[in-house]
């Protein structure tokens, strides 16, 4: 049972962080390989708030997320001001996450340096994670279907046209980045209180690549796709330990293969709405004859 719990909790945390990446990469078209950095920011902030200042866990999670969101402006503002250069942003995210890890690794005073930050109790339980995932999905859905989210999608499809049609690029991208980093930060907070400690080594480029993998495999402009893959990607390596050595190699090859043959990912452009759920339900559970009936009915 403990094993299943671990998968649910780690899978849920991965879902929340991957939803953050889905918002910035999947919906806004900005490539990130540094979201582990935002997880670290949120995680450490949350841990310090709870252990040192005795802030309630839920509030500390939110403040940790907000902190990660604010820090994202350090790279968001300079990178987005130079337009049409998505590359700047990708490199800046990597640079920021490496810088954060370096600072955490060498600062022993408050955050414990390379030894990590310890002394947290196990507050991240299965119900907490399940509630957090449901809220995260709900709010992500609300955002991407809102006028803000649609402006993000427009930017991802044609930045010049979006700007010429009056969309403020800097503002819209910063909003998406803030929310995205907020999600990563909350995921980091949850992780610290599951592991009961935090170490800079949790937040390497490998974790960022894992998050990117969830979104690339799950599909761009989709929430449900990355949600499923984020969970599966945590569950599968746990179930098949031997796979772990080959995991990143396989991910890498899959990145290439998916871009070549199905760049929209498994569920790209699939909106998470009830129409989709109904279609899926029909496809899976409706008996064959009934399906034919509806098709005839439609005609």
């Amino acid at each position: 049972m403990g094993y299943l719990n671990a998968i649910i909790i780690l899978g849920g945390i991965n879902i929340i962080a991957a939803l953050g990446v889905a918002i910035i990469t999947g919906y806004t078209g900005l490539f990130t390989i540094g979201h582990a950095g935002f997880m670290a920011l949120g995680g450490y902030a949350c841990a310090i708030l709870v252990t040192t200042f005795h802030v309630p866990f839920a509030i500390a999670l939110i403040i940790g997320g907000l902190f990660a969101g604010l820090c994202s402006f350090i790279i968001g503002v300079p990178a987005f001001r130079s337009q049409l250069r998505g590359d700047y942003f990708a490199i800046a995210t990597l640079g920021l996450s490496e810088a954060i890890r370096l600072i955490l690794n060498t600062t022993y005073k408050v955050v414990g340096g390379a030894f990590g930050f310890m002394g947290m109790s196990n507050l991240t339980t299965v119900p907490v994670v399940v509630i957090a995932v449901i809220l995260a999905l709900f709010f992500a859905h609300m955002f991407v279907t809102s006028q803000y989210g649609k402006n993000c999608i427009a930017i991802s499809q044609d930045e010049v046209a979006a700007q010429m049609m009056g969309v403020n690029l800097l503002r819209t991208k910063l909003i998406a980045l803030f929310i995205s980093a907020f999600y990563a930060g909350v995921a980091g907070g949850l992780m610290g209180f599951y592991m009961a400690y935090l170490s800079p080594s949790f937040f390497t480029i490998t974790r960022s690549s894992d998050l990117l993998a969830a979104v690339v495999f799950g599909g761009i402009q989709s929430l449900i796709g990355p949600t499923i893959t984020a969970f599966v990607l945590v569950a599968v390596p746990e179930l098949l330990r031997v796979f772990s050595e080959w995991r990143l190699i396989v991910y890498g090859l899959l990145f290439v293969i998916i871009m070549l043959f199905r760049p929209q990912g498994l569920l790209g452009y699939v909106e998470m709405n009830f129409a989709f759920a109904r279609r899926w339900w029909n496809a899976v559970f409706t008996p064959h004859q009934a399906k034919q009936g509806t098709i005839k009915g439609d005609q």
């Binding site: 006028q147 649609k150 403020n168």
Partner: peptide, 9 residues
Amino acid sequence: LGLHNVPHY
């Protein structure tokens, strides 16, 4: 998109 280039809420 042209209508909500500045979101209405």
